[in-house]
Structures are given as structure tokens and as C-alpha cells.
Amino acid sequence: MSVKYSNEHEWIRVEGDVGTVGISPYAQEQLGDVVFVDVPQAGRKVTKGESVAVVESVKAASDIYSPAAGEVIEANAALAETPGDVNADPMGKGWFFKLRLGNPADLDGLMDQAAYDAFVKSLS
């Protein structure tokens, strides 16, 4: 099991051929209080880099891009009632959707934890 990050601040945690996708602690902090997440429906086929979800903070709507291609197999329905999970637990309860990976090679272009930490540091 490994976690990788996109330069759009999504994370993907891969177990077998399923990746769970969310946004990073840095991303949730930048967004501020999340009040609504529009998650994709199960069965939707997505490409790498496609806008698949929208996260609404009090101030603005932000697109969430899929860090890999595949088919959505589950969305986090609990976020409809508790969107604040994205702020409180972005790497855990605040996950957005699960994806059956179509092309495992998509993960190669993503950052590992150390590379992502350095990337975030470079932004401040």
C-alpha cells in the first residue's frame, strides 16, 4: 500500500488494483471550510487528469482531478452529511472516491510522500 500525490494536491492510496482518492492536508487548508463535495457516481469511467469531483468551500468551488484513469467503484456518500471530514481528516474519513485502476502506469508520474512534502514546501 502506497500513497502518491498529484501536483493538483490530490492523493491516491493504492491497494491491489483499487485506488482511493482524496485531497491533501495542504489542499484542505488552502480551501478553508468545506461545505459540499460533488462526488462522481459509481460506474463512471474517468481519464487521468479529468475533472471528476467538485469541492465547495465557503468561498469558492474547486475541481478535483483524477490522478489516474479507471472506473469509479464507490464514492464517499458520508461527505454529503459531513463535508467537514475533508478538513478534519483529509487523508482518512475525507476520501472522495475509489477507482479501479485502468492503467497502473499512471501512478508512475505521481509524487511519493517525500517528493510531495518538498513540493508543498516550495509553494510557501
Partner: peptide, 9 residues
């Protein structure tokens, strides 16, 4: 635009 407690609070 906000302080550490956040816009909702």
C-alpha cells in the same frame, strides 16, 4: 480573508 478558526466559525 479569514483567521485560523475559519470562515464557518
Amino acid at each position: 480573508v479569514q483567521y485560523p478558526i475559519g470562515i464557518l466559525a
